[in-house]
């Protein structure tokens, strides 16, 4: 630890980030933040099943604390950017590490989800951009968009079948991304145990499925007329 101990925190963090392990650490950390947001967001969204009043009250509640709201938004934005930047850097490393590919290559030890993180990730990112434009700012949902009428905005948005389908597709991608990401973050920060890691993997799968199912339940409800019929 001799030379290590005298380094400044900034220096140490920079060195950590320089190594791929550091980048994975950042991905894990930001992954936790984004996952936490997803859980909160889902709980908020599921209030749609309790009716327009609850949903709109929830939106109003969030907007009643603009400082907190913007702080959270900033944190999320930073996390997303860091997550994406690190992933791009890691992918660049990967390209460099194997300039010539195999004529034939089989995957025998990895999940489909783990191998497609660089597909599921961009799909989710693209969706998030659209989703914000659609239900937060209303740019793509102009006809009916009314700020702070979260319930209406949501129902009108999902009544457009292509939007719902895209949403469901993105949630499947999210589920896969989470399945690998959720257990992988433990590995990245160095938590592994012969007994508990398999449990974590199974839990990650169920959490990923349930989370996606929760999100998907809303457009399904709208499309099948279980939700928003009064509008």
């Amino acid at each position: 630890m001799s030379s290590v101990a005298i380094d400044s925190h900034v220096g140490r963090a920079a060195r950590l980030y320089q190594a791929y392990i550091g980048k994975k650490f950042v991905m894990a950390l930001t992954g936790v933040i984004l996952f936490g947001y997803l859980v909160g967001h889902l709980l908020g969204n599921l209030q749609a099943f309790l009716g327009p009043e609850r949903m709109d009250a929830y939106a109003a509640f969030l907007h009643s604390m603009p400082n907190v709201l913007w702080l959270v938004r900033a944190l999320l934005l930073v996390s997303v950017v860091a997550h994406i930047v690190a992933s791009i850097q890691l992918t660049a490393l990967k390209r460099k590490a194997r300039p010539q590919g195999y004529v034939k290559k089989e995957a025998i030890g990895s999940s489909y989800a783990s191998r497609t993180m660089m597909w599921s990730g961009p799909i989710i990112a693209a969706f998030v951009v659209f989703h914000i434009l659609d239900v937060t700012t209303g740019v793509t949902n102009t006809a009916q968009y009314r700020e702070l009428h979260a319930y209406e905005n949501l129902v009108y948005s999902f009544r457009r079948i292509p939007v719902s389908i895209a949403y469901i597709f993105a949630m499947v991608a999210l589920s896969m991304h989470l399945y690998h990401g959720l257990w992988s973050m433990f590995q990245s920060v160095g938590i592994s145990h012969p007994r508990y890691t398999p449990v974590i993997k199974r839990l990650a799968m169920w959490v990923a499925i349930l989370l996606a199912a929760g999100f998907i339940s809303i457009p399904i409800s709208v499309m099948t007329g279980l939700m928003g019929t009064k509008l």
């Binding site: 490393l93 025998i108 030890g109 990895s110 257990w183 590995q187 145990h193």
Partner: peptide, 24 residues
């Protein structure tokens, strides 16, 4: 390259070394 916790290495290792060593 970097490790992305995929697990292909563990599957082909002739001495069946576990991903746990990477976490460590």
């Amino acid at each position: 390259g970097s490790c992305t916790n995929i697990g292909e290495c563990e599957a082909v290792c002739p001495k069946e070394i576990k991903l746990e060593v990477i976490a460590r």
